[in-house]
Computed example of a mutant assay.
Amino acid sequence: MAALTDDDKEDVLLAGRYGDLDDIQQFVAKFGAEPLADIRDDNENCILHMVCGNGHLDVLDYLLPLVPPSLLAAQNSARSTPLHWAALNGHLAVMQKLVEFPGGPGIDLIDAKNAAGRSPLGEAELAGWDEGAAWLVKMMNLDTEVGEKEKNGDAEEEADIDGPLAQQDIEVEIEDAEGQVAKMTISGGHGARSS
């Protein structure tokens, strides 16, 4: 393998930022995939921050099998994750890939707080992106009582997701960083609406 220089590191981060899949593939051919997990810019952003913040789904699809799943939860100097950046910039398909990636942190990514105290959901709300906020709320595990029963093997008929619980509306209030409260209703598996 060739020796990795600072210029090589900067070039691959820029390729991630601008969605240049060919340059990233050439980097991996020359240096292997392992260095991708350790490369950071001056603000501790990794390649996934660059790719996710700019919505490059094709590059994300290429990188996810190559990088360790822990990189999905990497925090930069502001403690924001790639999911924070995708939420802030309104990239729904990218958020879905990050949260649903097999073997990754999953829905735990939604709870990560940055230095400003905001989760990716908070970033989506702050940006006024209702579709992204609704998807994140839908993915969150809001029914912990049923979840605990299922984990303990005590699930009864009321835990049947096709039964009565699936038909109930769930009211959620979410407070943003400025203290504003948004109310959202999740309707029996038919999506979310905010008020």
Rank of each mutant, 00 (worst) to 15 (best):
I186S: 10
G19W: 06
L88H: 02
N76K: 00
A134D: 07
G147I: 09
F31G: 01
A86S: 02
E150Y: 05
Q167G: 09
A166P: 07
V51N: 00
S119P: 07
A73R: 01
P82M: 02
E150W: 07
E173V: 11
G103Y: 08
N152F: 14
E100R: 14
G191P: 00
A134K: 08
A86P: 00
G53Q: 04
L165Y: 15
E10L: 00
D20T: 00
M184P: 10
K138D: 15
A29G: 04
E171L: 14
E157Q: 15
Q25W: 05
G16H: 00
A115V: 09
N114Q: 12
L88V: 01
L36S: 02
N89F: 02
P68T: 11
D162L: 13
V51L: 01
V51R: 00
D6N: 07
L21H: 02
A93W: 06
G90I: 04
P105S: 11
I47G: 03
T185K: 04
L14H: 04
A112T: 14
D41V: 04
D11Q: 14
G32K: 12
S194T: 10
P69S: 08
D38M: 08
L83A: 05
P164R: 15
L64V: 09
P68Q: 11
L121M: 03
S195T: 14
V59A: 06
G104S: 08
G117L: 15
M1H: 11
V181K: 09
M184H: 10
M184R: 11
L98Q: 04
D6R: 09
V172G: 01
P82S: 00
T5S: 03
Q26A: 10
S80P: 03
M139E: 15
L121P: 01
D160K: 06
F101D: 04
D169R: 12
D6P: 05
P102G: 06
V146R: 13
Q167P: 05
P35D: 01
A15E: 12
P69V: 09
G32I: 13
A155W: 05
A15K: 03
Y18R: 08
L136W: 03
P120G: 10
H49W: 02
T144D: 15
L71I: 02
D42G: 07
L121V: 03
G163K: 15
E145N: 12
N114V: 12
G53P: 01
G103Q: 05
E125H: 10
A192D: 04
N45P: 00
V172Y: 03
A155C: 07
D130S: 15
L121F: 04
L57R: 08
L88S: 03
K113N: 08
H49T: 01
D61I: 05
A134F: 07
G53A: 02
G19S: 08
G132S: 08
Q180D: 12
H190V: 13
N141V: 11
A133L: 01
M139Q: 15
S195P: 13
D108T: 12
I24S: 10
A15S: 09
M140Y: 06
D42P: 05
P120Q: 11
P68I: 12
D130M: 12
A134E: 08
D61Q: 11
G191H: 06
L92V: 11
A93P: 06
D42W: 07
L63P: 10
E125D: 09
L121D: 01
F101N: 07
L98I: 08
L14Y: 04
D61S: 14
K113D: 03
